[in-house]
Write a protein that binds this DNA or RNA. Sequence first.
RNA 1: GGCGACGUACCCAAGCGGUCUAAGGGAGCGGUCUGCAAAACCGCGAUUCAUCGGUUCGAAUCCGAUCGUCGCCUCCA
Length: 469
Amino acid sequence: MSLKLFNTLSGKPESFKPLDDKTVRIYSCGPTVYDAPHIGNFRAFLFFDLVKRYLRFLGYEVNHVMNITDIDDKIIARCGEEGKTLSELTNEYRAAFEKDAVSLRIDLPDTMPAATDHIDDMIDLIKQLIDKDYAYLTDDGSVFFKIGSFPNYGRLSNIDTSQLSSTERVTDDEYGKENPQDFSLWKAWKEEDGEVEWESPWGRGRPGWHIECSAMSMKYLGEEFDIHCGGVDLIFPHHENEIAQSVCATDKLFVNFWLHCEHLLVNGAKMSKSLQNYYTITDLINRGYTASAIRYLLTASHYRHKVDLTEEHLLAASQAVNRFQDFRRRLEKLATSSSGHEADLPVLDEFRKAMNNDLNIAEAMGKVFDWIREVNRKIDSNDLTTEEAGRFIEVLDKIDSVIAVVSDDKPEITDEEATMIDEREKARQEKNWSRADEIRDYFRSRGFELEDTPDGTILKLSKEGSDKL
RNA sequence: GGCGACGUACCCAAGCGGUCUAAGGGAGCGGUCUGCAAAACCGCGAUUCAUCGGUUCGAAUCCGAUCGUCGCCUCCA
């Protein structure tokens, strides 16, 4: 059975095949770097990462491009507030984004082009659209895309443009539009823009939001590529507009598969700053949740369903991840060396079968947990050979190449604390239980758990976050 | 108003016409193991899938209606 992915364009699952048969070309909409990215943004970035990792699991090469939006209204406003230049601000938040992405084990895209480095490409694209009469210039020097010139406009979002409300507000910088629904390709300079400006054939100004993705995706991936993904909120208008611009400019397909992931909720509500339920990765890690638990929660639910970030769900995710990590630790104890041959077990086929069905990760995880129980049973009854243990580690790691939650979140302790663990071992041998428990309680208060096994004591991170959400 | 999604045990969740008296994870309870704990394993836990009708030999799965939750309709991952 081959991979099926739900294509927003058709509204149903379709068999996936790369356009060139071996390398999958993916473009995903990246962060707007005007503030620290929040956990909701990361649900999308983790989704892109999952898609990419799974395609590699299937044996495809992947070429992934993700833009960095470093020019837009919010960024300009923020520069004013913080008294920073555009590049100071955007470099700072781009770095923050990359740091959090790495901490969540997101495999960074092959190319992360910044919009401001591609103004010329955007201008070229806009020129083509004007030449072909898909776009027009207004008196103030702005350029708009004429949606009426593109018959397929609305197909992705399933919106009938004639049904769109005609009482659209027209903002200050958008007067002169022939149709209220036309969107801007180039925005003429305004006083609020300050020093943020570029020269263009239409005078100084800056690009509209949507054009960067068309220009950069086609520049790095070609005029036709395999997958374009983003959050559901981007379907309209962002991706609809991207299609209009790109298809009209090239008369090509542009994108074969459009994939969109659902939003993350916090305690059942949409995230917003006014509700103070606006978390960053650093917030959650500082509260004692591990990167693996966060990753599991955001990734192990189906991407087209909403996920609710709550204390209870984080705890459940954390336990699920512990189960994987403890399992690997048990295998490590038994395995002498890796078997060296290609790992293959029925569980991998079951995992693949589930994931092939539009990334049905819940079912896939169910199969993996079934397998883990079966192997644990074998370990308990001393039936597992060292050779098998080595092979099972390979299988687990193969699964982890997709889910990326099994490798340990290593607890960090001081030298004195390391000595305390030795001291506790001695106390236990002397049956000084009160001292042994005292030391364990100390570690608990620090967010660690000491687990005694026949082969010695293991230090783990506690499952619970230290601060409530 | 237009378009769309969803409603399965205490929580999350799979299920795409028969193998469903419904996977898996978390929480809970009982047990084995253990100095104690933890981990692991064993056992318990929905005769039922929002409600009501219909199609069918057969439905959680298809159709219709009703109730409820939510998203999008140019800030947004």
